[in-house]
Design a protein around this nucleic acid. Structure first.
Lengths: 220, 220
DNA sequence: TGCTAATGACTGACTAATCAGTCAGTGAGG
DNA sequence: CCTCACTGACTGATTAGTCAGTCATTAGCA
């Protein structure tokens, strides 16, 4: 998803010459989607202005309509596009059935910590959380492509647990419990970070302690 | 996406005549705040129409401006008003220091299950989560009046734990972990409930199992 | 008690501003 | 010199906020 393309200076064309009228195919679309994520993240769907998306992407407003029929479609395509690359990773984590279950859970949490927090995916999740209820198609897509697969992965891992290292039975029934602190981290960072910064690594470590050891001893 | 249906007035006019022009003091304000919660919940702040708030409250739009100077103030007052009654409850739960810590945690979770899920408070939390980042004053209010107090309450409870029934040390560092599944429940119910209904009671029970027993036995 | 004047809570049509979406025009590439 | 990706001024719809007017209620008076 990331490319070597330099950051677009938002409004003005670069000094010394006009921007080329026709660029590499896909470059424009990518710039628009990137700008859209920023603007929608900052203001929410309803308050986001397509003029802003356009100027941030370095194109005119009309250009947006060459790529997307309307605001809503742009919004949904943008969010589905960012999700796609994560799906492969998720599948890989789920199917590594030689790894001990506790380690697989740990890997899942580590993946989140490095590949979600502080990346565009964090913004995406925040948008799903805040706008999902008003975009049933989008919510359905995320439920089916991300959530359901993530939950299934955890269930698969839990089903392999037979040394009683953690409460696999409870986790099998509610794999959501693995993800709850991750969701909380994202929400916290979007809402309360400025009042009380949250150390996500440490929170996830504490989550692992509770999850994998129950009580008493710690095992780093 | 948006329905064009007019909002139905929540306040039925008295049988046989027009609504009285002057009502009991506070009644109008209360009706407006109630209507505002519904409309803002349904559409989000930016997309909510004050005409809808007015018609649901059974008043004219101009009347809103007799009580609140603008849309934003109405929004913030409304959310702060709903929070207030919960604060006393929270304080009570924190200070019941004769109750065993594990039971106090259980009481906190039970309180949430009965007094938040399915009540206006659930909508309020959902609005804080989705709009909080754009309303720093509101986020600050919630952080100071609700979040910080809730976390402090859990820390107080955890500090009294000395029988090692649960990982009080981890919870003391991150009391957020107690609340994470509750946040997840609210988000889930707002976003994915229609695709996969979530049994909040059972989820909280599983959370308690993991939290209080670690692994192994269950305690229904 | 019966009448009138004063009050101010309430109304809703209106204004001004915003913004999604359009389309005739432009100019670089072939 | 033709094509078409791109432009940006424009239009129509929407809606926050206003304010001159309305009328139920109450105070004052006989």
């Amino acid at each position: 998803m990331e490319s070597k393309l330099p950051e677009k200076p938002a409004t003005a064309p670069p000094a010394g010459g006009k921007a080329p009228r026709r660029r590499a195919p896909g470059e424009r679309q990518e710039a628009i989607l990137k700008a859209a994520l920023d603007v929608f993240s900052e203001h929410g769907f309803a308050a986001a202005r397509l003029d802003d998306v356009a100027s941030r992407a370095g194109v005119a407003k009309g250009t947006l309509y060459l790529y997307f029929p309307d605001k809503e479609t742009l919004f949904e395509h943008m969010l589905q596009g960012v999700a796609a690359p994560a799906l492969a990773q998720l599948a890989r984590l789920a199917s590594a059935d030689t790894v001990p279950p506790a380690a697989a859970i740990a890997a899942l949490l580590a993946f989140f910590e490095t590949e979600v927090i502080g990346t565009p995916r964090e913004k995406v999740i925040r948008l799903i959380v805040s706008e999902g209820a008003r975009f049933p198609r989008l919510a359905k897509f995320y439920y089916e492509e991300v959530i359901a697969k993530g939950l299934a992965a955890v269930r698969t891992i839990a089903a392999r647990e037979n040394h009683n290292n953690f409460n696999a039975e409870a986790i099998s029934r509610f794999p959501q419990l693995i993800f709850a602190p991750l969701l909380l981290s994202i929400v916290w960072r979007g809402t309360f970070q400025q009042f009380e910064p949250l150390d996500v690594s440490a929170l996830i470590a504490a989550h692992k302690e509770i999850l994998l050891h129950g009580h008493g001893e710690r095992n780093p």
